[in-house]
Amino acid sequence: MTTPTISAPPVPVLFDCETADRLTADQLTRLAQGSLGSLRIRNFFSAEQCTEIMRSLQTCPMGSYDEQLVQPRIAKLGPAAYDFYGQGRLREEYWDHAAQSARTRSTLLHGADPLTAALDTIRDAWGEAVLPASSGGKEMFAGMIREINHGARMHFDEVVREFTGILDQQPIAQLAFNCHLSTPAGGGEAVAYRRRWSPHDEDHRQGYGYDPALVAHEPRVSVRAALGDAVLFDPRNYHLVRPVHGGGRRVTLSFFIAVTARGPIFAWS
């Protein structure tokens, strides 16, 4: 007697890019649980808001990540935890830089803070408060403004793995938020891969990033945002930014979101 062959149904990849006109709690939940690869919210900021922020930025000096580690250069306003982490904590100079940067950004949108506008929209979608993440009882900086014109190497961002104990909160998921204040004629796509870091990946490290061959056969999503669009994804997955071409600048308001087991969500950069 021949035993019949039973074929299992295909397992869905669940790593698509979704485009929508407004942000919802369901979308954030699916990003956090890994059943959505990336999310693009059209016109998160209006063209007028983006123009005003970019106009105000003309008089703001921009720093950069440590250029001995991060090449090509990525200009930015505001500190990243990455810049000031040492011996299990944030170095003291982080707090002065955070306060100064927050003051500078706080008037860029018709005398108001574009970060406040972004967090208010996320709060309304989530249905709970969106609060600053904290470290050692002190509120952390959120809301860098970054200019990535020459691309960013493939890397991952995972605060609980890279900076153990730095957050007072206990995130169960980490999301990245980038609202596009200026967009180039071509290029600048954000590409996310359905692949997390593994210890043997350190054999393939290239500076602050990793060899793209690690993800050559992994599912991926690529998003090229229009002016004012917000793009969200899980940065614990490997991701990169393609170089700009054809002229123009790729400038974003950027921060991370910590989703915890209950209640508010928290933001930092």
Rank of each mutant, 00 (worst) to 15 (best):
E162T: 06
T59Q: 14
R220G: 03
H110S: 15
R123Q: 15
G88C: 01
G246S: 07
F233Y: 06
E202D: 13
A112S: 14
E158S: 12
A173F: 06
T116Q: 14
G207P: 10
R89M: 09
T260W: 02
V13R: 01
P171Y: 01
G151Y: 01
A230F: 03
W95T: 07
A230Q: 05
F256H: 02
T24D: 11
P79I: 07
H239R: 03
V130Q: 06
G186F: 02
L90M: 11
I145F: 01
A32H: 04
E162W: 03
R40N: 14
L167A: 07
W126V: 04
R205T: 02
R146Q: 05
A216S: 12
Q27G: 05
R89T: 12
Q174Y: 07
C179S: 03
P243N: 14
F15K: 05
D21W: 02
D201R: 04
A75F: 09
D229Q: 05
L175M: 11
D124A: 13
G111S: 10
I172W: 11
R262L: 06
K76W: 07
A213M: 13
F44A: 04
S106R: 04
I74C: 11
M144N: 14
T29R: 15
E202H: 06
Y193G: 01
P72Q: 08
E202F: 03
W95A: 06
I41M: 06
G247H: 10
L240S: 13
N149S: 06
T121N: 08
L57K: 00
R22W: 06
L109C: 05
R249G: 05
P184L: 12
G151V: 02
Y82N: 09
E162C: 04
Q170C: 04
G37M: 08
F141N: 05
I172D: 13
T107D: 08
R224M: 08
F141D: 00
Q174K: 14
D124G: 05
L167H: 05
C60H: 11
W268E: 01
A258Y: 02
A190F: 14
D83P: 05
P114V: 01
V13S: 04
G247N: 10
Q100A: 15
R89P: 05
M140C: 10
R22G: 03
L57Q: 01
P219Q: 05
H155N: 11
V191H: 02
Q100R: 14
P243G: 10
R205H: 02
D203R: 14
L175N: 03
V11N: 09
R103V: 07
R250K: 12
R242C: 09
F163I: 01
A258D: 12
F255S: 06
A185C: 12
I172R: 15
R89W: 00
V191K: 02
A176K: 07
V259M: 14
R73E: 10
E202W: 00
D113K: 07
H245L: 08
S222G: 12
V191N: 01
A99F: 06
A47E: 15
G88Y: 00
L214A: 05
A173K: 04
E92K: 12
A258L: 03
V244W: 03
A192G: 12
P12R: 02
A129C: 04
A112H: 12
N43E: 15
